[in-house]
Design a protein around this nucleic acid. Structure first.
Lengths: 336, 336
DNA sequence: GTGAAAGCGCTAACAC
DNA sequence: GTGTTAGCGCTTTCAC
C-alpha cells in the first residue's frame, strides 16, 4: 500500500491535519513536530498524492499543449521550450498532436478538461475557436503561441511576421537581388499573410515592382516545395533569390536548384524562416529568419501560469522580434 | 460551478449511484432511466471528473514518456508515434525531456508517480536503473523503447541493431566498397555496440579486414560529425564509404565530403541509420537503415497498456527488424 | 499549536 | 433496478 498522510500521522503521533499543514507551510506548527513529521515522511519516502490534493480544489500542475505535429521540427522545438519552462516551474505538460484536425482538437480539449489541467497552450491552427472560447468561459486559462486569434480573449506570444518578411526581403534587396520569389505554405494563415506583406513592403520601399508570378503556394513538404521551385526555376525569367516562408520549404527550394544545376548561393540565394535545426543541417547552411522559439515558449508558459495563479496582469499579446541569421544560402547577386 | 453526478442525479430524480452506473455500464439500469440520465447529462454537458474517478482506484489514463530531447528528430518521431497510439487507446501522454541527466530523470519520475500515471515509457539513456527498478517494485508498469536494459524486469521494444549494422555494411560491400568507415556517437551504448558488431560481422564474412582507424566516435551533432569526417576524409587512404550510426552523423559526413569537393555519392557513399525526416531532407536523399518507429511506438504502448490492465502476457522483449531504405547517398564504388 | 470533521467527485459493495 | 453508504487521500474551517 502506498503510504498516506494517515500513516505518517499515526507514526508521528499527530493528526493528519498537522501533517498536511507541514507539507503546505500552513498554520502554526512547532518546529519540533515539524521535524518529526518530516523525518518520518522521509523514512517512509512519503509522496503526497496530487490527485487527492487536486480534488480538493488545488492545482493539478499539469498543462496541455496542442500542436499540429511533433515531427515538424518547428513544433518540436516549441514543445521542448514549453516543456522546459513548465518543468522549471513545477508543471508537467501533456502533449497533443492535432494534425490541425478540428475533431482531434475537440477530443483532446475535452479529455484535458476532464483531467482538470490547469491550462492549455495552443499552437494549433484551430479553425474551431468555439471550443477554445468555451474553455475560456469555463475559466480555464488558454494561451496561444505562434498563432493569432485576435477574436479570442487569450494571451498570446507571436513573432512579428511582418518584420520577418520585411527583413528577409530587405536583406536580399540589399544584396542586389531584384527578382525575388516567395514560397509560402498557405496564404490564408495570418503569419504567412504578414510575411508576404513584409516582403511587399520591402519591395515597395526599394521601388521594385511586385510580380505576382513570383509568389507561390506549395504543399507543406520538402517534396512539394521542390516541385514548385522546380517550375519556378525552369522559367526564362527565373528569380535570383527565393524567400521561403519556412525552413522546410527553403530546403525544397535548395534541392530544386541543385537538381537543375543551379548553384546555391552563387546562382540563387535562398532565405528561410524559423531557424529550426534544419537550417543548420542544410547544405549550404541556411540563412534564415529566426523565431526566438526558446523565448516564445518561456513566455507563453509564464503568461499562462500567471493566469493560473490569478496574478492576472490582464491578457497580453507579446510580439517578439525575429532576427535574420546569416549563414551561407544567400549571397550578393552575381554580377551586381 | 462544474456540474457533477449530484447535479444530474437530482435533475434525473435518481441517485448518484445510478448515474455512475450508467456512465460505467455497470449493474442493471432500465433503458428508460438510462436515457433520462444521458439526456440530462447532455443538456448540462456533464463531463466526469477523472481525478475523482482515479482517486477511487481507477486509472488516470495518463502515461509518462521519458525521452532525452524532443528536438532530436528521432525522439520527436518516437514521441509522436507513442502519443498517437496512446491517444487511440484513450490515454494522454506527459512528455519529459531528460537530456539524459539522471537528476532530471529522477525528478520527473517522482512527479509522475505523485500524479499517479498509469505507466511510464522510457526512451532515455538512464544510467540510474535504480529509480526504474523502484517504480517496478511499486508495481508501476514500465516499458522501454529503443533502449536495452536487460537487467530490468520490464517489457521493451527495440530494433535489431546488429542486423541493421550488418545490412548497412553488407549493402556497401555488395556495391564494391572495401574501405568502409563507421562513425558512431557513443560506443558505450548497446545499440552502437551492436551496430558496430553487425558491421564487423559483414566485413568478416566478406573477408575484408577490420581497420580500427576507420571506426570513429564523434560528438552527437552535425558539426561534430562533420569535423571527424573531415579528418577521416583528409587522409591518404580515405574510405570510399561511410556508415554513420544515425542520420545526423550521416549529414555531417555528407557535408564534410562536400566541403572537400568529394562528391556524394559518386566519390563517397554514405549510409545513415534511423530514417528520420532528416534522411528525406538531405541532399542527396539519404540511404539509411530504417527503424520502424511507428511500429515501435505502437508496440510499446500496447505492451504497457496490457500491463496496466493486468492482461499481462508476461514481460516481452520485442525485437523489430530494421530495413535498409535505398535513396541516393550510396552507389557502387567508382571503378568497381 | 493541534485536531475533528466536513467535503472535493466519484466508485463499489451491499441493501432493498 | 435503484439507493445508501463508506471510502479514495487530501485540504480547510473552526474549535480547543
Amino acid at each position: 500500500m502506498k503510504t498516506t498522510i494517515y500513516d505518517i500521522a499515526r507514526l508521528a503521533g499527530v493528526s493528519i491535519a498537522t501533517v498536511s499543514k507541514v507539507f503546505n507551510d500552513k498554520g502554526r506548527i512547532s518546529e519540533e513536530t515539524r521535524q518529526r513529521v518530516l523525518q518520518i515522511s522521509e523514512e517512509l519516502s512519503y509522496q503526497p498524492n496530487m490527485l487527492a490534493s487536486a480534488l480538493t480544489g488545488k492545482k493539478t500542475y499539469t498543462i496541455g499543449l496542442l500542436i499540429p505535429d511533433l515531427v515538424n521540427p518547428f513544433f518540436a522545438e516549441v514543445s521542448r521550450s514549453v516543456e522546459d519552462r513548465a518543468h522549471e516551474l513545477g508543471f508537467n505538460v501533456v502533449i497533443c498532436n492535432t494534425d490541425n484536425d478540428s475533431n482531434k482538437e475537440n477530443k483532446y480539449i475535452s479529455l484535458l478538461r476532464q483531467k482538470s489541467v490547469d491550462g492549455i497552450i495552443v499552437a494549433t491552427g484551430a479553425r474551431n475557436e468555439e471550443a477554445l472560447r468555451e474553455l475560456i468561459e469555463q475559466r480555464i486559462p488558454v494561451a496561444l503561441i505562434a498563432r493569432e486569434m485576435s477574436s479570442l480573449p487569450a494571451s498570446s506570444v507571436v513573432v512579428d511576421d511582418f518584420a520577418g518578411g520585411y527583413s528577409a526581403a530587405s536583406y536580399l534587396i540589399a544584396a542586389g537581388h531584384e527578382r525575388i520569389a516567395l514560397i509560402a505554405e498557405n496564404l490564408e494563415v495570418s503569419s504567412s499573410k504578414e510575411r508576404l506583406r513584409g516582403y511587399r513592403q520591402a519591395l515597395e520601399e526599394a521601388r521594385l515592382s511586385y510580380d505576382e508570378n513570383l509568389v507561390l503556394v506549395s504543399d507543406f513538404s520538402v517534396q512539394g516545395s521542390k516541385q514548385t521551385a522546380l517550375k519556378l526555376l525552369a522559367t526564362d525569367s527565373r528569380p535570383t533569390a527565393i524567400f521561403a516562408c519556412n525552413d522546410i520549404l527553403a530546403i525544397g527550394a535548395i534541392q530544386a536548384a541543385r537538381e537543375l544545376g543551379i548553384e546555391v548561393p552563387e546562382d540563387l540565394s535562398v532565405v528561410g524562416f524559423d531557424n529550426t535545426i534544419l537550417a543548420t543541417m542544410s547544405d549550404p547552411p541556411m540563412t534564415t529568419v529566426a523565431q526566438p522559439i526558446q523565448e516564445m515558449g518561456h513566455q507563453v508558459v509564464d503568461l499562462i501560469i500567471q493566469e493560473i495563479n490569478n496574478e492576472k496582469k490582464a491578457r497580453q499579446r507579446v510580439v517578439l522580434l525575429p532576427e535574420l541569421i546569416v549563414r551561407g544560402s544567400a549571397l550578393p547577386r552575381a554580377g551586381s
